[in-house]
Design a protein around this nucleic acid. Structure first.
Lengths: 213, 213
DNA sequence: TAGATTGTTAATCGATTAACAATC
DNA sequence: TAGATTGTTAATCGATTAACAATC
């Protein structure tokens, strides 16, 4: 029986992936957990523990092959393989995300943007068409979409979440400032921007208090 | 000597704040840790432990006064008091954040947007003017700004971070897909969107694997 | 072979949960 | 007063770090 891998470990993987990509660009082909730990400001022990959740990618006496490790982590994260995504909500944030080049690079293939504003319907963002919200259910029945990005106003987010999950979507990337209720085969990843900014604000006050007192 | 409050506790505060705000809107004036724990899907014990990091806000046999607790947590997070912020980078994401009503509501006062594109300089987003990047240092010398939002391309982010912190900014809200190096009196709060999406992608694959096997 | 560095076990540290006396 | 619920201490659980035998 396999041990469940902690979400804390998972959340560190993309960071490893980034640093390894950086090393690749610098043509560094080999790295030890110690060297990497110094670059990333974590312990070498943690790196080795984390990686060994997924398999022995290193070699004693040598370290890790950067290319191999980078692509292993990529595979674990599901980068590389193409997966369709849609954006619901063509407001400023939906716009920004649709234009975000980084997603396509990582295999996320934007195949539709949905909005209830008829004025926007038919327009294109970054080569992707904006469709009428009313056609969303049909669209999902005809296209395999596992991930939906929700950049819609707070009040309709739960309703849209219900709709898209009823049509087969299994992952929600939620930008609304609220928590969603979904059945337990659906994964929600929240980006609570206000929460993040408030956390920053707290840490700032704290840091200033410390300096004064 | 006070114990340092864990960042895990801090990151839960905005969520408490949201739920309490919700209760206020429903005109609920009183709540016990047990009731709140059921709504929020955490343990009552954790709520009481978290709150007691900051003081005894409750009353034995009664619970917590919603209004009082809401405003206490608001004060802890530095909401309510007005603080100036700027956005550096008037691209899609900078645009979206400038238009985000939620920040103003929480006391974050956007006083300037900066971009190096001369075409954009002089335009306004949500009543806030876009200024020339070259004037950023001067602007910061003349205006008290503790927080800068960085929505600029990856390659110039470190440079801009260096610039604004040299001019007194103490908190960076970083949307670039990289880690910043700053002196230790500066707080960086990262919003790594790609990391977040990859984490979602991993969890999805995992959940599907479990169902199949 | 000797040196380096992994994979993995054990020790430590910190966070969460449980329990209950204090008290409203 | 009796019932409810906090604040807080103690117990448990999980995550991180340290240590080292295995081995390239």
């Amino acid at each position: 029986m396999e041990r469940k891998i902690s979400l804390l470990v998972i959340r560190r993987l993309p960071r490893y992936y980034r640093y390894l990509g950086e090393l690749l660009r610098e043509n560094i082909t080999r790295i030890s957990s110690k060297e990497l730990s110094e670059k990333m400001n974590v312990t070498a022990s943690q790196i080795r523990q984390d990686l060994n959740c997924f398999g022995g990618f290193g070699q004693q006496g040598y370290g890790y092959n950067v290319t191999a490790l980078h692509s292993e982590i990529g595979a674990i994260l599901g980068v590389n393989k193409l997966q369709n995504i849609i954006i619901v909500g063509a407001g400023n944030l939906g716009h920004a995300l649709a234009n975000h080049a980084g997603f396509a690079k990582r295999g996320f293939n934007l195949i539709g943007i949905f909005d209830s504003d008829k004025e926007k319907v038919g327009q294109k963002i970054n080569d992707c068409e904006i469709y009428d919200m009313e056609t969303l259910g049909d669209f999902l029945d005809k296209n395999e979409v596992r991930i939906a990005i929700l950049t819609i106003p707070r009040l309709c987010t739960q309703e849209v979440a219900d709709l898209v999950t009823a049509h087969g979507v299994k992952g929600l990337w939620n930008f609304s400032n609220m928590d969603l209720e979904v059945s337990d085969d659906v994964i929600v990843e929240n980006v609570h921007l206000s929460d993040s900014l408030m956390t920053l604000s707290y840490q700032l006050s704290e840091s200033e208090k410390k300096k004064e007192g």
